[in-house]
Design a protein around this nucleic acid. Structure first.
Lengths: 203, 203, 203, 203
DNA sequence: CATGAATGAGAGTTCATTCAT
DNA sequence: GATGAATGAACTCTCATTCAT
């Protein structure tokens, strides 16, 4: 079995290799700006080789989205350590923003890009995203149960919180904060977040 | 004069024809996904004809953005009638959301889509957008001056409000509310908005 | 008749207008660099108007060649005043070079460009060129008859002289003197010409 | 090794294939008159294939020029055997004319055609051409040093000789000897050259 | 497993030319 | 007499993709 194992492992390595190169390029030049040839050049293989690991460009894209969803989920793992629901919720928001500001391209992939959703992998990706979403919803639910909010409409609360943080990140990622000097943008986002956490205490 | 008039009208019609076809395509497939040929096919003219009305692809895009910015500004005009600053601010948010949900394609063009910003017309568009932005900021400022908020950080307040409504619209426009049944999405957005207006009273 | 006359005159004026614009552009950007639209823009008429005066782009080109041949012939007219055949011959050479260095574009048109020679006008142009050529040959013949040369092979002499001055101009016109600093090129040509006139005395 | 060798050979063959097709077309229609598609059609490959062998149109042209310059240099190699400077100089001229009359297309490429000179390869070509030019200049210089000329202005002498032979070839290559019957053209050129060699003895 | 070679399709853009008005 | 509007054909060049080796 060990030979097949190694082969499998090598195959997986190559896939990751391709994806990571694709992601890097994607980060630099946007989705449409990346070509199979670019990726091939980056990993120093021939374009044809890519097709041994991915059926077409769309499949690479789908895999990237899945990957992004995985990275995001991992980014939230430390939250499991936080027992106090309110603290966990606040940290959820902070980590969401951190992720969005730091991995803008991944965030874009997950929450902004208008993507073809035909592939199976897209659905896996969606499933993965939903577990994260449910984790968030449950955290809100726990807060509601513990009477941290006056309102008991968990759905509305969760959605409101999400909308806000998404707004912050989306404006940043898609470069719509040009009226603020570059070095002040993140600071403003952070200040606003602090303000927002105050606000929701009265929900 | 009527001949020249007619010609003028026809020319204008053709421009709108092109723009409206382009708008649909841009929204559907993004800036890079749309080709001059696509647009030409859509209006059943030859590609060369497009160039009689627009210098290049970018100019079409810029014209659309400019137009969108104009529509949005007009959408906010009734606000001028509202004297009470708080009411005006709340209505601002409501109208922002209305605009985004109703003219998703225009909203996308202004606040989400990725595209080059080199053209002069882009800058005019930006200028137009900024007047709207300033109108918003002033409204917030007036509220601050009138002590509607405890906080006096106008910039942070304005940004927070904007981020929230943008988040709501952006999730909607880019179809990230698939976990909610279609017919409930707008309702949820509205409910959340009501919740949000309550929240900001304590800012 | 006077109406028809005026019309004719106006038509001719327009033709010259077009040709002179075409020539200017041609000078700047080379034959292939000039488009009908360019010419139309230059004379502030519509491209379609050009077609009222010339059947196609080729015809403009042919007319230009004819014109160039005319300008060249005129350039040689003063030679008729010179009675002494040797002096006339030397002056012929000097004027040939003057013409080539000063009206490089016209020279190119006549002696270098690889042109389609289908048009009737091309043949007229050729005829015009030939009269100039014959004038030159006759001048050489006169010199031969007057024993200015030892050789009596008029044809060979004429051809040799022509080849030399053409060489000088052609290297200049087609920018093959880049090994000499720009400001010295013409000077070198002139010095060489002086040298050449000495040489041919022994022919 | 033989596989790699064969591949290498095939690649080289293809390049030559392209270049030879391109050469014919360039000569026939000039630089601007030739399109990548033309070349592709001529060799019965797709246009995209051309780009596997040459970066762009200019590179094809540059390669041709470089090649032509090489062929020309090789054409002059036998001159190295000739010790007597005067004989060498005369033979230089003869070989120059031979080259121009025999390889008109290459000559055109080097000394007549108008084309952009941006590429590095153009500069290599220029460098190669200059070594040939220097070899010529040195030959003249040696003659000057050995008092074969009365004049000591090496530069002017060299330029004069060059201008003459270029004139001969250029008139021929660009078909400006139409007033002479085709079969007599080369003969006339040769006769003139003989005459010219006599002339320069008195320089 | 990897690839060199090839290509059809398509990108944005410009052109000479026509024709109804 | 002049033109605005239109277009088919062409341009250079890039792309995703295939396939024999």
């Amino acid at each position: 079995m060990s030979i097949a194992d190694r082969k499998e492992r090598e195959k997986e390595e190559m896939r990751r290799n391709i994806l990571s190169a694709a992601l890097g390029l994607f980060r630099e030049k946007g989705y449409d700006g990346v070509s199979i040839r670019n990726i091939a050049d980056a990993i120093e293989y021939s374009p044809a080789t890519i097709y041994l690991y991915f059926r077409d460009k769309n499949e690479i894209f789908a895999a990237l989205q899945y990957e992004a969803a995985g990275v995001m989920r991992d980014h939230f793992l430390p939250l499991l350590q936080i027992e106090n629901p309110w603290e966990r919720l606040i940290d959820f928001g902070r980590r969401y923003m951190d992720f969005g500001l730091k991995y803008s391209d991944l965030y874009d992939l997950i929450f902004i890009i208008r993507a073809p959703m035909e592939h199976v992998e897209n659905q896996e990706c969606w499933a993965l995203g939903m577990t994260t979403h449910q984790f968030f919803t449950q955290t809100v639910q726990t807060c509601v149960d513990a009477r941290y909010f006056k309102s008991t409409d968990t759905e509305a609360i969760a959605y409101t919180l999400w909308a806000y943080v998404h707004g912050v990140v989306a404006l940043f990622v898609r470069d719509r904060m040009r009226m603020y000097p570059p070095e002040k943008r993140e600071e403003l986002a952070r200040k606003s977040f602090a303000m927002f956490t105050k606000m929701i205490e009265v929900l």
